[in-house]
Amino acid sequence: MRSPRILLLPVLLIVGWEVAAYFIDNPFVLPSLSTVIPILLHPFSTEYTLGTGSLVENAAASLFRVASGFLLAAIIAIPLGIGMGRSSFLHDFLDSTIELLRPIPPLAWVPLALAWFKIGFVSIVFIIFIGAFFPILLNTIDGVKSVKKTWVEVAETLGARETDVLTKVILPGSAPTVWTGLRVGFGIAWMCVVAAEWMPGISLGLGYLILYAYNFGQTNLIIAGMVVIGVIGILIDQVFRAGERRWFSWRSLER
């Protein structure tokens, strides 16, 4: 347990918020905490969300979209990254194209996604896919390249075939870095979903919810939605970190 001083600033911020809300006295600019908390305490109710889906329904919709895009990105990026880490031909063949596409922000793909996939689920998943794909790919390439040459050679002198080298040396040896890529990729995917849900024609999701609340001037609902987005982001990051400690502690313990 770390010292309580890590809680000091959050507590000060909340107190400051309440004081500021009292003096500003305009719930559209800064609603009082007391109008935000009830929303969070009724996550299954639609009464607090102005008739649109409840917090839980919106969160579930966002999570499902993120999971779909993220899994698709992982399924494509991990094998591709292993291939690029192992084969300099494949690396040289793809690297320039990847470097060209990588700096384009995921949200810059929105118009193109709409043109290709129309309004709806596929477009959102595509945006999330773009967001998660590059961190997973680059970390996988890095992870595969960081596998010690000696580990591979030991396996070879002990009679390993190409597939053994891949499954028993390259995969476990690069797994911690790939895992980091998944964690970062999920974080970016989660950021993308909110904005992707601002595309026209979407009627559920946390991103949709906060924009919908804005249209009604309900800043307390905007803030409640942001809190949910933040908390889910932290929780999933913690799951990834727990996995890292559970399975890959050898990497930090190895000198």
Partner: peptide
């Protein structure tokens, strides 16, 4: 498989 090699640097698999 008639020969096995031992390397200078530590070559054990740290995940095993």
């Amino acid at each position: 498989s008639q020969m096995a090699m031992i390397f200078q640097e530590y070559s054990l698999y740290p995940w095993r």
